[in-house]
Every structure is written in structure tokens, then in C-alpha cells.
């Protein structure tokens, strides 16, 4: 059977998400080895308009049903599974966002397909897709292959390069799926953006994280100032989330978020195995801790031993000066 890719393009705020363009990019790069077409799928009344600016897909299936403007997992899964069947897709690609992971599982279930979640590496071998994915919260990785067709994959955001191509007209076709009676039983009715446009730790390019070494919730104030200077987000260890100093949304590590920013600054974090698993793929790691033997220093690119309460404000001041000097 010839290979065929279907890529789910998640829409947020009237545009296709960057992470979906990463999935489109990877599907397009693998096309050289796998052959076949790369077909995009877009849901909702804006789908036809969005498809016109979409480079990289060979063509796009649009489901312009306005009922899909509010996300319903079951309806989106019905539509995407039908598109997969009608296009003869052998690999169905998603970004491993909250919505993408949900939908990937639901589509795999409907197609009776194998599902490789949150992949960090994809290669083609003998016409088949081989995927590498973290397990045990990143403490190990497995390489997997589907026993048959089709295969559903979701790709970890910020790992794969998005497709860079100038926008060009893409051929579209409309699909009117047959929805089941229960497909709209649960729908997303509201999206509240994070207060003050605060960045999500999982998406920020710089993360300044704090642990128990900060002594209390008020110890995070200097970290927030440092994060602000760097345009980053504030993260937290599990210990301080469990103590109620920070919300769970900020937790980095297993049972929290996996992050891989350009710069990760760990302040007063000793480096429990669960925390290290969640941030070890960061490009540069800075550790500041009063205990020179703390395990965090084993993964750090740069380490400073000392009192976080004194060093962080000094670092913030020095960075302000350095950044101002470049302007």
C-alpha cells in the first residue's frame, strides 16, 4: 500500500498553531522517503480561508461545518477519522498539544490504529514510520513501529522544525462527515487566556524555576522579576506545588509539565529525578543552589553555589544592564 499522510491542523485564535506547522513540516520532510501525499485537515467555518495560505501540504481537506467552531472531541474525531479513511491515510499526524493528544487517541480508537504519543524523533525505514517517544516521564525512551496500518503519531511541540515555505495556494476539497448523535454531547464553551498574558512554562523560551530553597511563596518574587527581564515564564518544583506555594500549572517535571526552553534557570531546586526528567532537554541549564552537592548541578551547563535570595536579584540587575547595553 502506498504511503499517505494526513496532518491535523489545530486552529487557535483564527490561525493554524505553530506546533501544527511543525507536524506538517515533519510529514513533508519524511515524504521524500515514504512517498505519497501530505494532506492537511482543517475543521470549522474558517477552514477554507486558512487552507489558502497553507504551504507545504499537497492538498487540504476542509470541514467547514460551523458546529466545529467550538471544539468537541467526539465531533472532531469523527471528522478526522472520516478524512483519514477517505484519503487512504497510513500515517495521521498531530501535534502533542492538549487538543492534539486528545484527538490523536480518539482518532486512533476510531480507526483501530496504533498510536505513538508525544514523539521526539521520527524516521522512515522500509516505507514505514519509526517513532521515538519518552516514557516514565522522560527517564527512558522507546522506539516503536506499528504492527500494521494505519499509525497515529503526535509530535512533542518545540522539537520538530516547522515548515518554512512561502504561502501558496493549496487545492482544497470539502468533506461533510456523518456525525453521530452523541458527537456534540460535550463541547468547549470558553477559553480564558492566562492572566496578564503570562507565558505557559511549556511554551516559553526562558523558564526561571524555583524550589524549596526559596523558603516560601514570597521567595518567588525575585524569580518573577528575573523572568520578566528575560521575557520568560516562572516554573516550580513539585515540592513547592505540593506545599501550595505555586499553582500546579507551573509545575515542571513528572506529574507536571515537560519543558525544553532555550534557557532554564533552576533556583533553590535540588534536582529530584522527576524534576530532571522534565527539564533535561533544555538547551542551557543554569543552577543556583546553596548545596554544592545538589544533583541539579550534574545536569547544569553553568552552576553557582550560594544563596538564591542574594544571587537572583544580582543576576536580574546584571542582565538588565547587559540587555540595555545591546540596545
Amino acid at each position: 500500500m502506498a504511503h499517505q499522510s494526513l496532518v491535523y491542523l489545530e486552529v487557535r485564535g483564527g490561525a493554524v498553531k505553530r506546533s501544527s506547522l511543525e507536524a506538517l513540516g515533519e510529514a513533508s520532510r519524511q515524504k521524500a522517503a515514504l512517498g505519497g501525499e501530505v494532506v492537511g485537515i482543517l475543521l470549522g467555518s474558517s477552514s477554507t480561508t486558512l487552507a489558502h495560505g497553507l504551504a507545504g501540504a499537497d492538498r487540504c481537506i476542509c470541514v467547514p461545518d460551523p458546529r466545529l467552531d467550538r471544539f468537541s472531541l467526539e465531533a472532531a474525531a469523527t471528522a478526522t477519522a472520516e478524512a483519514a479513511r477517505s484519503s487512504g491515510a497510513t500515517t495521521i499526524w498531530f501535534s502533542a498539544t492538549v487538543q492534539g493528544r486528545d484527538l490523536a487517541g480518539a482518532v486512533a480508537a476510531r480507526l483501530g490504529a496504533a498510536y505513538a504519543a508525544d514523539c521526539v524523533e521520527i524516521r522512515a525505514e522500509g516505507g514505514a514510520v519509526i517513532a521515538k517517544r519518552p516514557i516514565f516521564g522522560g527517564r527512558a525512551l522507546v522506539t516503536v513501529k506499528a504492527k500494521g496500518n494505519p499509525l497515529v503519531v503526535s509530535l512533542r511541540p518545540n522539537v520538530f522544525a516547522p515548515l518554512v515555505a512561502s504561502p501558496a495556494a493549496v487545492g482544497t476539497s470539502n468533506l461533510a462527515p456523518t456525525f453521530a448523535s452523541g458527537d456534540f454531547a460535550a463541547v468547549v464553551t470558553h477559553l480564558a487566556s492566562a492572566a496578564g498574558g503570562a507565558k505557559d512554562v511549556a511554551e516559553a523560551e526562558v523558564v526561571v524555576s524555583g524550589g524549596r530553597g526559596l523558603g516560601g511563596p514570597e521567595g518567588f518574587k525575585p524569580l518573577e522579576e528575573l523572568a520578566q527581564v528575560l521575557g520568560g515564564a516562572v516554573g516550580a518544583s513539585r515540592a513547592v506545588v505540593d506545599l501550595g506555594w505555586r499553582p500546579h500549572a507551573d509545575q515542571v517535571g513528572q506529574t507536571g509539565k515537560v519543558v525544553s526552553p532555550k534557557l532554564y534557570i533552576a533556583c533553590g531546586i535540588s534536582g529530584a529525578i522527576q524534576h530532571l526528567a522534565g527539564m533535561r532537554t533544555s538547551q542551557v541549564i543554569v543552577a543556583i543552589n546553596k548545596d554544592a552537592e545538589a544533583p541539579i548541578f550534574k545536569v547544569a551547563t553553568y552552576g553557582i553555589v550560594g544563596d538564591v535570595g542574594v544571587i537572583v536579584p544580582a543576576l536580574t540587575a546584571a542582565l538588565k544592564t547587559a540587555i540595555a547595553a545591546r540596545r
Binding site: 490504529a113 527512558a140 513501529k145 532537554t281 547544569a300 553557582i304 550560594g306 546584571a318
Partner: peptide
């Protein structure tokens, strides 16, 4: 429905550098 071909541990990060103690290292 998936075959596992291999299980591995994440690669070690390249060795880092201690920059010293206290504010002097900033």
C-alpha cells in the same frame, strides 16, 4: 498495536561548569 524495537536511557548532558560561589560569580 505497536511493536517496541528498543528502549534506551536519555543521553547524558555534556559536562557543565561551576562558575563559583556567591554574588561574585554572577
Amino acid at each position: 498495536l505497536l511493536d517496541v524495537l528498543a528502549l534506551e536511557l536519555p543521553k547524558d548532558r555534556p559536562a557543565g561548569r561551576m562558575l563559583g560561589e556567591g554574588v561574585g560569580a554572577v
